[in-house]
Design a protein around this nucleic acid. Structure first.
Lengths: 190, 190
DNA sequence: CTGTTTTATTAATCTTGATTCATTTTTTGA
DNA sequence: TCAAAAAATGAATCAAGATTAATAAAACAG
């Protein structure tokens, strides 16, 4: 019994058939239509989402009442509001499907049970979290070492396929500038 | 046999006396004089540092040849360049002591051995990494929802004691603006 | 102590990217 | 298939914070 999730886990640790069954019976597969929400502000985030198919965005509404995207998640990425999940405090975020999406969802409490039943999963999540933090370190470095225009071209060169997949205004939001400024940049070079 | 590190670990998981001995014999205590370096660019980062006393900063030199600080670490915080550590690629960063500092240092390879000898340490590091990532999520939210001036006052209200501890120009660097702008802000209100 | 380095301040000018508002193009759903 | 909504573009003006340059104050080493 395998799933996109256990396939992913097996890239990092070994799983027995029994482990896989424990994992797959702890999770729930959810199909999320484009524009549907998995999390909304003021709700307490109780689940982690592993994208098996499609694309999610994490965003909040800023003081100017604009959507500010802070993360995307595509296939094989985990997404959740760890602040709300860890502390039990209400979230400030929306998690929304950008495309029709399939996620493998696990609740915080089921995950804690799973860590007891399959302790080596701690290792998998330790590695995943370490990589996520490394990515965040790198992102903060980019934020503080490139202008907005440079970050646009940089993102462009690193993830051309992803850029085809999302509306431009969402990338502008993620990169922290306005759609108008993005048009200006694009008009210049290409 | 305890240390500041095992005390910290015991806040998250239980350790036997034997576990503690294994941990403490895998690590090395280093005293780092103010302004001394634990990591410099072009070197491959092979160690993780747990600050038992003092204060470190992680920074790189940006295109304008200024120091850009991206992280601080005080007592009970881990600091390393996870990108270089994970991938074995040369680092872009400096890790430098801001004060005379004592760190508990462990190499990547010793840590891997320790994970085999004391598997429950995976859980400790999983939790530590998850919190670090949650902090990074929050930081990115602040970067994209407050002006530089707002972030200054916000930091000021959250960490007044830490502000006493570091030169102002380092905080300006961490917050992503110039010392001149910081003086302007301070002259206004406080 | 005292000269030197490090840190902080002030002010004038300049730049990047925001804002506002209008228009055009593309996508979507009934 | 076509109206309506969503997404992208364009241009004029504006503002937050950078740059430059000079000075002042504090910390430090010999």
């Amino acid at each position: 019994m395998h799933s996109k999730l256990t396939d992913h886990i097996k890239k990092f640790i070994e799983l027995t058939e029994a482990d896989e069954q424990l994992i797959n019976s702890a999770v729930v597969v959810k199909t999320v239509k484009k524009k549907a929400f998995l999390l909304q502000p003021d709700h307490i985030c109780k689940e982690l989402y592993f994208v098996s198919n499609g694309c999610l965005r994490l965003y909040f509404i800023n003081k100017k009442l604009n959507e500010q995207i802070t993360q995307f998640a595509i296939e094989n990425w985990w997404l959740t509001d760890y602040v709300s999940l860890d502390s039990g405090s209400p979230s400030f975020y929306y998690i929304q499907a950008i495309e029709n999406t399939e996620v493998i969802s696990i609740t915080k409490s089921k995950l804690e049970e799973l860590f007891i039943a399959v302790p080596k999963l701690e290792r998998y999540f330790r590695i995943v979290q370490q990589r996520a933090f490394a990515a965040a370190q790198t992102r903060i470095k980019y934020i503080y070492s490139m202008s907005d225009e440079e970050r646009y071209w940089h993102f462009n060169s690193l993830f051309p396929a992803f850029m085809q997949r999302i509306p431009q205004y969402m990338l502008a939001s993620y990169l922290g500038f306005t759609p108008q400024f993005m048009s200006k940049i694009r008009a210049k070079k290409g």
